[in-house]
Design a protein around this nucleic acid. Structure first.
Lengths: 335, 335
DNA sequence: CCTGGCACTCGAACTCGACGAGTGCTAATC
DNA sequence: GATTAGCACTCGTCGAGTTCGAGTGCCAGG
């Protein structure tokens, strides 16, 4: 039954290449004697694996390295690995005393980058519709004001608006009282209707429309999606395996957010426990030499945590760490 | 008067090296005939400059490159350069429609990284003591609550606190009313006194102390200092001039914040319009191959914007861009 | 189906020499 | 005294040539 041994050969090649960063040859594999066959046999298996497109030779007489497809096959056959105890403890102590959402996200991303030695990525929890709890308006200079909306699910959104023309203190205070009275406790369509009516009142302040608009979008689930990352230096560190030229585009992609967000959304749609994109599977030029391991967390599993690194990464370890951090984040965020 | 010409030679070497990234020799300099003397004369000048420690040879028979000291001397003699019109326009359009403080900072840092083609750094405006305008408490699950403090100067601070034990809705609502009545409009010592008294009241909720503490720190000027950066890819891009191994430590330093903040503080203390640290002047191993150009902005010029790049950077251009962005930021933030 | 053996391939690493950019020094010139 | 022209010298870069060996594919025998 050589089929099974071929899988083992592939696994050995992936593991060997990941740890040494060098093409692995049949002889070395035979001498590791975990396979129990001679190098010649391994060579035959290799020839078949190569034909199947799972491994490749950088040049004629070198050892083999896995292709994207090879990693894929390897990953698909992977049983969930356990996370080292030390790491489990790290997660507990690291995240337990976070003081607010920002802090939770910040700590998570740092932690994950340290556990995986990759670039860690955390998407801010995506938010559901929520009732308005309190609206605050604060003057900034003569012509602007800051609108702060606190939602019932403990979120705070803020935005500056232009007042357009001078507004008396009285009118200002009245607007604050009124908008609170109008919006408090409402959601969705009813909120929108109430606010539109309020803004349209005959002697209303001219900037009431702007306030109403913002309150509605804030209640609808916040303003924009954001992802934060940490551990960028892991890309550049010696032995990351990324050539000098390929790291700048990756950093760009990370900062650009848009690309990354789309990719994370796609991965969320796959619905697996932990989802992996390898090399070209990211469908993005800049990331064609990197892989992403991501897992959903939070209410409705609507947001993602992930780790990004060279295709030649430690998949089992990374997957375990990402999974664990995602679970822990879920606990914290679902409060 | 050869002293003056020697300065010109140094300037030419710096400019040449910055633009070509290659050591510049006496012959090339003579042929550019902006100096009007022969290569032999230039060689003599070079020998003196080398003795003064302003330039160095990578190896015996190569051209010269400026040392940190050489750049320093070059920078100190620099007259303020004008910013290209195109860049001025860019600043206007880029920053004009920011919707809140985060947005302003985010846009600024992006913009500056594009203008300078370096890593841009913006420290969040540091904050002064300010009166409390409104305190909001939102329950999160059974055991936690979020405290939101809106200050009179349009800042919003938030933090989760543990409730310790079950609190009835009535007690919760009463606490909100009371703490607002107690704190509104107050600052500093009076605020602290009022809140301590409130928290110490006989039948007070057990978590009143935590709320009081946080409100006081929030009013005192916010929680922590933060700096954001953008354009990290500029470090890695081909021709940045940083060797492969030196960029990981720089990225680490950027993410670590602490180092960077300390450095920025030191630079702020110098009080110049635009302040420059070159190479080893940063007093930090990881940054010993990079320079930082920074300028203060905001009320009391208490926060900094800056650009960080290889010591071999375009100082006049970078300084002009940093200065311009700092001015613009001041306008926006001082509203 | 596995294994030992063997001829072959091809990149890495090294040596070698030609080349030339750049230098420092000296003596002549303004 | 400052500048210049000339010249011998240094030393890194570049390309060609060479060796070395890891790794391969294939074949014949178990």
């Amino acid at each position: 039954m050589s089929e099974e041994r071929r899988r083992a050969v592939l696994r050995a090649i992936v593991e060997g290449y990941v740890s040494t960063h060098e093409p692995v040859g049949s002889k070395a594999l035979a001498e590791a004697h975990t396979l129990g066959v001679s190098s010649a046999t391994i060579r035959n298996d290799m020839a078949i694996l190569e034909e199947e497109g799972l491994i490749a030779q950088p040049y004629t007489s070198a050892g083999r390295i896995p292709t994207d497809l090879g990693y894929r096959s390897f990953v698909d056959q992977l049983a969930a690995a356990a996370l080292p105890d030390a790491h489990k403890r790290a997660i507990g102590t690291f995240l337990s005393d976070a003081v607010d959402l920002n802090d939770v996200v910040e700590r998570s991303v740092r932690l994950l980058s340290q556990l995986t030695r990759q670039v860690a990525v955390v998407q801010y929890p995506s938010l559901r519709e929520s009732a308005v709890r309190r609206i605050e308006l604060v003057r900034m200079g003569a012509e602007h004001a800051l609108v702060v909306v606190v939602s019932a699910d403990a979120r705070v959104d803020q935005r500056t608006i232009a007042l357009g023309e001078a507004t008396s203190d009285d009118a200002f205070e009245r607007a604050v009282r009124e908008v609170n009275a109008t919006a408090e406790g409402l959601t969705g369509a009813r909120l929108e209707a109430a606010l539109t009516m309020w803004a349209a009142a005959p002697d209303q302040v001219p900037w009431a429309g702007a306030v109403a608009d913002f309150v509605v979008t804030a209640a609808r689930g916040g303003t924009v999606e954001r992802v934060v990352f940490a551990g960028a230096s892991n890309l550049a560190r010696a032995g990351s395996g990324l050539e000098a030229g390929t790291i700048a585009p990756v950093l760009d992609a990370l900062e650009e957010q848009v690309v990354l967000l789309r990719l994370l959304h796609e991965m969320a749609a796959e619905g697996d426990d932990v989802s992996v994109r390898i090399g070209a599977e990211t469908h993005h030029e800049a990331l064609s030499r990197t892989s992403i391991v991501a897992a959903a967390y939070g209410r409705d599993a609507a947001s993602l945590v992930g780790a990004l690194g060279p295709t030649r990464m430690d998949y089992p370890g990374t997957m375990a760490a990402v999974r664990a951090v995602a679970r822990y984040l879920s606990k914290v965020v679902e409060l």
